[in-house]
Structure formats: structure tokens, C-alpha cells
């Protein structure tokens, strides 16, 4: 795998280092991971798989905990609305 590659976050391309988690890509892109029950933007809190605040849509799969998932080239990530 190259040392850096592109993933798409809400349609925009982000170049991430190999080994980066999807949560990292979303924070780098300045995009929230999910929208809360009352519609607030949310991002990662615990970084260790416990809080579930980093859930997003990864390659079409909703509610994926992005802090526990590694980026792959050409991944398509979207805010979980």
C-alpha cells in the first residue's frame, strides 16, 4: 500500500497516511461523523471504540465505528445523518 492515498469524505478528496483510521480522515476533512438525535454535528470523543460518537457511513454501511476502522484507497465515507 502507498504511504499516502485518497479517500472521499462527503464527496471531497482527502489524502491520508497509510494506517490512518476513518475517524482521522473525517477529522482531517473537517466533517462531522454523525448527526445526533436533535441534529447536532458530532465527532470522535473517546478514540477507543466506547462512545460510538464516531459512527459514519463507510462504503455504504451505516453506523460504522470509524475510530476502529482503517482507511483503504478509494473508500467512500459520509456523515451518518
Amino acid at each position: 500500500m502507498p504511504s499516502e492515498f485518497i479517500v472521499r469524505v462527503n464527496g471531497a478528496s482527502v489524502s491520508v497516511p497509510a494506517g490512518a483510521t476513518v475517524a482521522v480522515a473525517m477529522v482531517m476533512a473537517g466533517q462531522p461523523c454523525r448527526s445526533s438525535v436533535i441534529g447536532e454535528p458530532r465527532g470522535p470523543l473517546c478514540g477507543m471504540g466506547i462512545c460510538f460518537e464516531c459512527r459514519a457511513v463507510v462504503n455504504g454501511i451505516p453506523h460504522s465505528r470509524t475510530c476502529q476502522l482503517l482507511c483503504e484507497p478509494d473508500m467512500e465515507v459520509k456523515t451518518d445523518e
Binding site: 497516511p17 494506517g19 458530532r42 478514540g47
Partner: peptide
Amino acid sequence: WTLPNVMGAGGLQALVKSGLP
């Protein structure tokens, strides 16, 4: 405290360890 980029101390460290510049 629910704003994006307010994180745990260990939480932010974990993100940096997994690639966040």
C-alpha cells in the same frame, strides 16, 4: 462539550497515534 474537536485527552492521543496530523 459535544462540539466536534472536543475530545478525550487519551482520545485525541489515540487519534494522533492512528495518523491525525
